[in-house]
């Protein structure tokens, strides 16, 4: 078969597969009619929807701020649930209005997070998502996830944050036009909970996260991933190679820890030893490699003089400088990582 025909056939088959998949989904959809919806906004008994214009009568500032957010720009074709503007998230507002703004009769996001914007009501008398008991956050998360189900959120369910009952509104503020609606910018947002990482990032050797040059979310998918520690790649090494491609190779002479797991030698958040090494050389290396000794008479008693010890047992990478892998053999013809 000619290559062009093969390509056409491949394209044709692919299209048929896609269509068949769509067809299956449609059929599957018919069978799902008895299933409950993925999310329910917490209900306010007896309340009915009144529309956005009614809300805007009192909440002028909030409306102005909200109009700057991505939520206000959502197109109809993107909607996964009914468009109710303010009441999409806050629930039906009729009782809230009848009670002259009774804050017990409306659902609020993030009251405890921004008293300046919302006034200083008594949080204990307000139903607000951020103040929900941990076990009840799942419902509010599910409500957000009913729209936010793109690829970056595929792994939320069962992720570490989900298991720990982290709520969407613990990090995001749907009413404020900040980057990704975050309640505060990275890395402070992450480090408020991960306080130990904050300390590590100030150790003498660290990635420039506190300096604002890279973000926690460059490496971790905070919404979950299929790999451990919510990494954005399949394993640690593949993740590191994203920014350090020169260490990927694949090399003729490989150092097994590099391809296995960079964290065998490195602690990416911060260390005392330079280059994010878990421990300083030579201790780090000598846990796996016996120290040097040569059979040549001049170097045999390697430990006898301080100078020799200083040479062989100070910094292994002074000589083995290509330990992340190389294609060039050492002068012995072996892979000693010295070229």
């Amino acid at each position: 078969m000619k290559p062009s025909k093969r390509k056409f056939k491949l394209a044709s088959l692919s299209t048929i597969v896609v269509l068949a998949l769509c067809s299956v989904m449609t059929d599957a959809g018919e069978k799902q009619q008895d299933r409950a919806p993925t999310a329910k906004v917490p209900s306010i008994a007896g309340a009915e929807y009144v529309g956005q214009k009614m809300c805007a009568v009192c909440h002028v500032d909030q409306g102005r701020e909200f109009s700057k957010t991505a939520h206000a720009r959502i197109a109809t074709f993107e909607l996964q649930v009914a468009r109710r503007e303010c009441e999409s998230c806050h629930g039906p507002g009729s009782l809230h209005i009848q009670g002259r703004g009774d804050t017990r009769k409306i659902l609020k996001f993030g009251m405890a997070l921004d008293p300046e914007l919302f006034g200083r009501g008594d949080p204990s008398k307000i139903i607000h998502y951020s103040g929900l008991p941990p076990a009840e956050k799942a419902n509010t998360n599910a409500y957000c996830l009913s729209c936010h189900n793109s690829r970056s959120h595929f792994d939320w369910a069962g992720s570490r944050h989900d298991q720990a009952n982290v709520g969407c509104v613990d990090c995001h503020y749907p009413m404020r036009a900040t980057e990704k609606l975050l309640i505060k910018p990275e890395p402070d947002l992450c480090l408020d909970c991960h306080a130990q990482r904050r300390a590590q990032l100030s150790y003498p050797s660290h990635h420039p996260i506190l300096e604002g040059k890279i973000k926690c979310t460059d490496c971790h998918n905070q919404h979950g991933s299929g790999s451990r520690a919510m990494l954005r790649q399949e394993n640690v090494s593949q993740l590191c190679f994203q920014c350090h491609p020169e260490k990927e190779g694949p090399f003729t002479f490989e150092h097994p820890p590099v391809t296995e797991d960079c964290t065998i030698c490195h602690e990416p958040h911060g260390t005392i030893a330079n280059n994010l090494k878990k421990q300083e050389e030579p201790f780090l290396c000598m846990q796996c490699h016996p120290g040097h000794q040569s059979q040549l008479p001049a170097l045999k008693d390697v430990l006898d003089s301080r100078e020799k010890r200083q040479t062989f047992y100070t910094k292994c990478t002074q000589c083995h400088s290509t330990l992340h892998g190389t294609d060039l053999p050492s002068t012995t013809g072996l892979g000693r990582f010295t070229r």
Binding site: F283, M286, Q287, P290, G291, H292, Q293, S294, Q295, L296, V302, L303, Y313, T332, L334
Partner: peptide, 13 residues
């Protein structure tokens, strides 16, 4: 840890 100073692995006399 137990460390080993000196070895004869590989290159031998």
């Amino acid at each position: 840890a137990v460390l080993y100073f000196g070895s004869t692995g590989g290159l031998r006399s």
